[in-house]
Write a protein that binds this DNA or RNA. Structure first.
Lengths: 235, 235
DNA sequence: TTCCTGAACGAACAGTGTTCTCCCATGGAA
DNA sequence: TTCCATGGGAGAACACTGTTCGTTCAGGAA
């Protein structure tokens, strides 16, 4: 069992068959990247510890040296995605548009990673670094807009909740702007008794309308305007 | 193997040991009630098909004769809970307070069943009868308030999303008004670098303040007022 | 060169939802 | 009364899940 012996041709062959394709050593970063790759390609349901291990040419147990639990891994994946959100420094003159831009971008990033928004719904309190960066920026903007501490605190929570929840909602509706989901709901509403549900049946078209991000913008306007009114900044 | 033989004392005893405590036959209703009982006592994580079977003195497989899948069962459980929400007929004069009452009550019912709100977050489109009753009532109130079809449609979605998402959020924070969660977050924020997160660290108190339903009311006011403004009904 | 720490990892555990398949009691027909 | 078909009840099994245990083994320190 010397160190020279395993370097022979025979040993190289043997070693190649015994533990073959592990080029780089395992690391927290590589694990999180692999996990995000799986979410992108196959969705959150496919994200299992075994699947991540497989992606890295190893087993599930090996991951636990770098990651405490699956819950932690999912949080780290979400934080990695948040990296893609670029932040601007708060500007009192345009804070409302800044806030909207930030939330639109957050939604966009979440939706670009399949149903990753599901993770964001669970992780409602920002504890990972980039999630906290976003909260920090948002708080700055709200304070720049003249909101007092408590209103800004409630506001950042409210806006984050709205964004993640609508992104989750959208991601369950078949990914993109698929009309397949809309059509299924609409045809279901057609089978519903008109006398018991006169509103729903008569408004079926308005209820199932789902044109891109119009719905998101609708709520965004109400929320930002409502927050602005709290500080007397509203026009 | 006649029908008389098994009625002897011996057979009765034997039968009692072989298939003992199944008094009533299994039914959809009994299954859903048992499931809600489990959620109340042990939470959504404890709700498994085997656990429901056990609650009824049988196995998991027997449930599938009455319920298509676990997903459907969860939806039925949620619908059963919605039964507890009493609905008023829309009144144009007080529609804003009506809407708020309805949403407060919805939140209250969700929170009274542990973390049942988790199910409500997933089931964002009302398809079960009582969920549709609620949506119907809400639409009536919004229309009574003078909102046009599209605004009312977006509004009912927005308000439902807000209520279920905040209820879910609250249910993850340790059930009741437990200060244990608040304290954990607050002490975590104390360990965070002040230079990178000046806002978060300086506003830690405001951010972690969680006094009962104050937070919920804050968002509720903004949303209802924002919707009212869309119809020119705002005061 | 020896020792030792810690990563890697196969196997196993206790679960999960769901399906297959058989058993058998019940109800209607003969 | 006898027969048979229908369908609910359930045990076993399948393919998974997250996590832990005990072992192995490679690389750096002494």
């Amino acid at each position: 069992m010397t160190s020279a012996a395993p370097r022979s041709g025979w040993s190289e062959h043997w070693q190649k068959e015994k533990a073959p394709p592990r080029r780089q050593p395992l690391s927290r970063e590589r694990i999180v990247e692999a996990a995000l790759r799986i979410v992108d390609a196959e969705g959150m349901d496919a994200l299992s510890m075994r699947r991540v291990g497989q992606e890295l040419g190893t087993g599930a147990a090996s991951l636990y040296a770098h990651v405490g639990s699956k819950e932690e891994l999912v949080e780290l994946v979400l934080d990695l995605a948040y990296t893609e959100i670029e932040l601007e420094r708060p500007d009192p003159a345009t804070w409302q548009e800044q806030v909207k831009r930030l939330l639109r971008r957050s939604r966009q990033v979440l939706l670009s990673h399949r149903d990753l928004a599901r993770a964001a719904v669970v992780a409602n309190v920002p504890v990972t670094p980039h999630a906290m960066d976003i909260a920090e920026a948002m708080l700055g903007m709200l304070r720049a807009g003249g909101l007092d501490e408590q209103t800004a605190a409630y506001g950042v929570d409210l806006l984050g909740l709205y964004t993640t929840a609508t992104a989750f909602e959208a991601s369950t509706r078949g990914g993109g702007d698929s009309e397949e989901f809309t059509e299924r709901i609409r045809s279901y509403f057609d089978t519903v008794p008109t006398d018991r549900y006169p509103m729903i049946t008569s408004m079926a078209v308005a209820l199932t309308r789902n044109v891109g991000d119009e719905r998101f913008e609708f709520g965004l306007d109400i929320l930002v305007a409502g927050l602005a009114r709290q500080s007397g900044t509203a026009g």
